[in-house]
Design a protein around this nucleic acid. Structure first.
Lengths: 337, 337
DNA sequence: GCGGCATTTGCACGCGATTGCAAGGCTTCC
DNA sequence: GGAAGCCTTGCAATCGCGTGCAAATGCCGC
């Protein structure tokens, strides 16, 4: 194997008997090159295995084609599903994803984020519960476009994509009522992110509108284990709930497991359960969880097409916001249907 | 907000009253700069909000700091867990991850991969079942370092990290025998990746060594649904198995669910089940699956430290291979213990 | 045959950084 | 005091590419 690995535009130019500019123009859409020259260049490029160096191109164009995904709870079913559709959509539009994992607590997060900025990423998509607005600020100040998914930062500039959590909460309440439930509970984590709180508040408000109270319990991180603890707390009360809306499918799975295996409560006969996200596990036979599906494909498409719309039209801080509808996926964790 | 977004080294140099080289050297570890100059530079840099442009640096140094993660089945619990630890480890060592999703079947995969190469990624880590060796070849030819995880390509150059699948299969056989099982089955997908086949072959061989036969069934993709189908096929046989080793936890979950909810078979009383990977769901109360834990942290550490060891010492194709041990995680899907 | 016009091509500069080389400053020692 | 040697520093070349500008080419109509 030769020591010299990459071919430069100069070498292609030499072989094709044209100038280096001609090579550059051949690979620049919309540039003025004659068919004949283009043919010669492409031929030489192919023979030499030439490819445009994106580092150099990004340097010149001042636009790298890199989109930075800033993610916490990476391994969670919902988040990984989101990453999957986002990377697909990005690749589809010729961009490439850089991944910044914000799970760690040491300084490496900050470091990686700065890294991403130093690579002059064109944009960042934040799917992180991290309440730290400074990240977003940093991205904006670096001239990146910014997409916030399921966060509700009151900020100018970014595209904000959210679900109509309150409305969904109202719908699930109706479903509980139809099933004959009256002793309502809401199981939440302590994360306190806007979407989680919207679900909680929407549920409580809807119940109140029907003259009903909701027992709200919050605990820990938004995961399976927290669901179990929440079940422990809610199912040992004097007035045991007969319906619980969990802020997340993961919580719901933990909740159901504790209810069944620990308290021998039958779902949905004695207890109706609903979740949110429609992760894969919600459809598993052991859960059959009624839940709300996040429109992942739509979210990804909206996000990427907004990014593609170019860095223009940014009328000095005009905020764009998209509010999407979450479909109710009906399964057997609620009676009736 | 001003139009000019980024500060260049020149501006820092001007403000600090030094030359551009001094600025560069200040941000290059090991370069020769006097404490006094360094102080002035850092001060100016801080005031102006200067950061090294990694695109330009990568261009000069011919090493970008980018590591490309080539992944299929991104949203799978095991894969997303792998990605999580890898990104953490990479960030920890000052590198940044680019994500290429190989799930799509259209040309965008190839495109994204080439993209990654065009960004002059220093290395690629392949966690993809994709049997396409050409990807690996392409990476190597581009002068990248390459890490293959749980694949067994017979190739020179890359670091290959594998588990001792056969040995693990032997251990689980012993567990089944201890539980009194004699009618053994193996549930596999049709993916046919080396590690899956190693588990199958190892299990069959170990059984044969004990004078026992194994019913092997393969179906579809390595996911929950396939597990259900496999259960359907294996549990309707005349001689119903009393122990099944599933090539993957996801298969095992589907298998258990079908066994319980569709065939009303009690696990582990009437059927012992084991899986592989130790995904989060394996520990959920509904499954309590006995399985093998992939040493994710170790894999990530080995991979990244090998990458850090630099592009040297590549004695023209010397292959490095690491074989790791998978710990058996004992839960209640097998009798006894 | 020639001027006018549109298209193509090459030159040369710039993007933002790294780095070899040589000049300059300082200490040290004879 | 002066030569030797080390540490700093600036100059200038380089990395691979994009692009404005002017020269060159080709085509058309008169």
């Amino acid at each position: 194997m030769s020591q010299k690995v990459f071919v430069s535009a100069q070498e292609v130019a030499d072989r094709a008997g044209v100038s280096r500019s001609a090579v550059s123009r051949t690979f620049t859409p919309g540039a003025s090159v004659s068919p004949e020259t283009r043919r010669k260049v492409l031929e030489a490029a192919d023979a030499l295995g030439y490819h445009v160096n994106h580092l150099a191109r990004g340097l010149m164009r001042n636009e790298s084609g890199i989109v930075c995904l800033i993610v916490s709870d990476l391994a969670t079913p919902h988040r990984s599903g989101m990453i999957k559709v986002l990377t697909q959509e990005l690749q589809h539009s010729g961009k490439i994803a850089m991944l910044v994992n914000t799970d760690l607590s040491d300084g490496s997060v900050d470091l990686a984020l700065r890294q991403a900025i130093h690579y002059r990423a064109d944009a960042s998509i934040i799917l992180s519960g991290m309440p730290d607005k400074s990240i977003a600020q940093l991205c904006l100040k670096s001239g990146q476009r910014l997409v916030l998914i399921n966060r509700d930062d009151e900020q100018d500039g970014p595209l904000r994509i959210n679900l109509d959590d309150e409305e969904a909460a109202g719908r699930i309440l109706i479903a509980f009522l139809r099933a004959g439930c009256r002793k309502l509970a809401f199981a939440n984590s302590e994360a306190g992110t806007p979407s989680l709180m919207a679900r909680e508040n929407g549920f409580v408000a809807a119940a109140r509108a029907h003259g009903l109270d909701v027992v709200v319990e919050r605990y820990g991180w938004t995961g399976y284990e927290s669901g179990r603890v929440l079940a422990q707390r809610l199912l040992t009360r004097n007035q045991r709930p007969d319906a619980v809306f969990c802020a997340t499918d993961l919580l719901a799975c933990g909740f159901m497991d504790a209810a069944r295996h620990q308290f021998s409560i039958s779902v949905p006969d004695q207890l109706c359960v609903a979740g949110f996200d429609d992760i894969e596990q919600a459809s598993w036979a052991s859960y059959q969880l009624t839940t709300f599906a996040q429109p992942l494909a739509t979210i990804a498409r909206e996000a990427v097409s907004w990014l593609e719309s170019g860095p223009v039209a940014n009328s000095e801080g005009r905020t764009s916001a998209i509010r999407l509808h979450a479909d109710l996926v009906w399964r057997s964790s609620i009676r009736g249907g």
